[in-house]
Amino acid sequence: MSSLARNLQEQHSQQRQQAAQPERRKALRQRVTPGEKLIWAIFAALLFFGAVQIVSAQSEVYKVNKDIQEMKASIKEHEKANSDLKVQVKELSNYDRIMAKARELGLMLNENNVKVVQ
């Protein structure tokens, strides 16, 4: 009986040890609540919206810069054309050329009818 008593005593001591040890709970997976999902969805939407706004703003800046460059090129072309026309006006308003053209058309220079204006 001593072995039976010993077995019972060991079982009681094992039960006490098991009772003394806290039960190990399985680690619960932290689940994402619907509120957190909503917050993350709103954050993602705002992030996407901000990215789209930045890209569209950069696109507009690029377009305006391109228009500015085209206008500068157009202005340079017009300035060159104007300077060429000024040179042509100077060449055509040469006194000798005007006199030759006047004689060709039958006009004569009368020194008595010439008045000098200052």
Rank of each mutant, 00 (worst) to 15 (best):
N65H: 02
V89R: 13
E77W: 06
Q18I: 03
Y62H: 14
F49V: 12
N94A: 14
V64E: 00
Q17M: 08
L92I: 05
T33C: 07
E36I: 02
F48N: 11
R24V: 12
V52T: 07
Q53I: 04
R103F: 12
N82T: 14
M71H: 11
Y95H: 14
M99F: 10
L4M: 14
K76L: 15
K66A: 12
G50P: 00
Q21F: 01
E10S: 02
A73S: 13
A73G: 03
F43W: 10
K101P: 00
S56L: 13
E60K: 06
S93Y: 08
D67A: 14
V55C: 10
R25H: 08
V52Q: 03
E60W: 02
R31W: 09
A57E: 03
K37V: 04
A100Y: 03
K66C: 06
A41Y: 01
A102W: 05
S93E: 15
A57T: 11
K80V: 10
L4D: 13
P22T: 03
L28G: 06
Q14V: 05
V32R: 07
V55Y: 14
S83K: 10
M71C: 09
A45V: 04
F43D: 04
R25V: 05
K37A: 02
E36A: 04
L46V: 11
H12N: 09
H78A: 15
A102H: 05
S59L: 09
E91T: 10
R24Y: 04
K72G: 03
D96M: 12
K101G: 01
A41S: 10
A73R: 07
V32K: 05
A27K: 09
A45D: 09
L8F: 07
Y95N: 15
M99K: 11
R29Y: 08
L85Y: 13
K86H: 12
G35H: 01
A102E: 05
E60S: 08
S59N: 14
A102G: 06
R97V: 06
K66I: 04
A27F: 07
R16W: 04
E23K: 11
I54T: 11
I68R: 07
